[in-house]
Design a protein around this nucleic acid. Structure first.
Lengths: 133, 133
DNA sequence: AATAAAACCTACTAAATCGGTAGGTTTTAT
DNA sequence: ATAAAACCTACCGATTTAGTAGGTTTTATT
């Protein structure tokens, strides 16, 4: 139950960009060095973030990245979901294909997990990039 | 961010045992069939649960397992931790050895994660096996 | 005493995931 | 023309995960 390096790095990079002037273009390399992220790995992460419309990019010399949304409009839940999928343990890890998972028959357990998932989602949805700056 | 099959199966098995008369010995095989768990896999899980004092076992013919504690005294947080380790994302997934992890420099992010971890822990610690029956 | 049912224990394995690297191409300001 | 940047895809080694295999020991029952 932890974040992957991908989503952790994504958050760190977004926070860094959030601290820069909104119109400044910053290279992935610069962010990588500033936040201690392996540069080629961050490149991949930025590709995903751009495709998901969190970042805008400008190609070529003097190009770089900038936030595509205001920090108040980027909530952390979405970012983490982009890389790690769902936020809490509702999906079963066990291998059941056509039959219902055994856990699905234990309603109270399922309710607990849903409760946790909902709370974690709500907490992270309520937190925006702006709150991290 | 999901449970492993191990802890999920452990919970399902404990719930099943919790529903049986406290003094009844139930074989791992019986529990496996009832809850849809691969029998040899459950055997391993029961070994851990016994060593961690959640179960008592009786060997030989007509032997089996029974809860070693009352259902009100088994909280779900402990069980999950036994198999999956810590409950929420505070440890960093990225590889940093001597230097502080970059995330540690982002205090607000760290605070958020701690907050989530604490809430999830508290929620699961407050929930006992008895609540599932 | 023989059998069978059960716990006990350890090693293994196939698949998936993860964290990261490699190696290019294309675009564009200088 | 050059260099700096984004873009893109494939790969790779390590670890974790989910489960299997194959025994041994113990004990109630016959």
């Amino acid at each position: 139950m932890k974040l992957t390096a991908r989503s952790e790095y994504a958050l760190l990079a977004l926070i860094y960009l959030g601290r820069q002037p909104a119109d400044l273009l910053v290279s992935a390399e610069t962010v990588a060095i500033a936040q201690g992220i392996p540069p080629k790995f961050l490149e991949q992460i930025f590709l995903s973030l751009r495709r998901a419309k969190y970042l805008r990019s400008t190609k070529g010399h003097r190009g770089g990245y900038q936030l595509a949304r205001r920090p108040t409009e980027i909530n952390l839940a979405e970012v983490v979901r982009l890389f790690d999928g769902a936020l809490a343990p509702t999906e079963s890890a066990s291998r059941h294909f056509y039959e219902p998972t055994p856990i699905e028959k234990e309603e109270k357990l399922l309710d607990l997990f849903k409760d946790i998932r909902d709370w974690v989602s709500a907490r992270m949805e309520a937190t925006t990039l702006a709150d991290m700056l």
